[in-house]
């Protein structure tokens, strides 16, 4: 089963290690260049699978429009080999950068649950009278 979020060690890195690694991570994200063309981190997630299609279907009309607009603007900037002016770069706010993550987790959980319940091992004990 595909997990659109891929494997990540990030949740397991905590405390001092996290603190020391964070500047490196931020630097990497800036070097990656997607912010400079106005894209958010979650816009980069591969969408050619059932789970992501389902996630995208759950966006509100506004969110859906904005996403398509960001993608088109980014493609346009890429063709021109130009970055957007700095005030149009995508926001630092992580909840906006990861605007799909919660919904991806929700959908993956649904898929995992279906897989589990299609091969059930749970037991319902009947009460004897």
């Amino acid at each position: 089963m595909v997990n659109p979020l891929k494997i990540s060690l990030a949740p397991y890195i905590k405390g001092g290690l996290r603190k020391s690694l964070e500047p490196i991570a931020k630097g990497y994200l800036n070097l990656a260049g997607f912010k400079q063309v106005g894209l958010r981190y979650d816009d980069l997630i591969q969408e050619e699978n059932d789970q992501m299609q389902k996630v995208l279907g759950r966006l509100s009309p506004r969110e859906e429009y904005d996403r398509v607009w960001r993608l088109r603007r980014a493609i346009n900037q890429s063709i021109q080999h130009k970055d957007l002016p700095a005030e149009q770069w995508s926001e630092e706010d992580s909840s906006q950068q990861r605007y799909l993550t919660d919904r991806i987790v929700q959908v993956t959980n649904e898929y995992t649950e279906r897989e589990l319940l299609d091969n059930p091992e749970f037991k319902i004990e009947p009460k004897h009278h």
Binding site: E110, E113, R114, L117, P120, F122, I124
Partner: peptide, 13 residues
């Protein structure tokens, strides 16, 4: 319980 879980539990019982 998710919707699916309700159906599967009902089926199992």
């Amino acid at each position: 319980r998710s919707s699916l879980r309700q159906v599967r539990e009902a089926e199992a019982a």
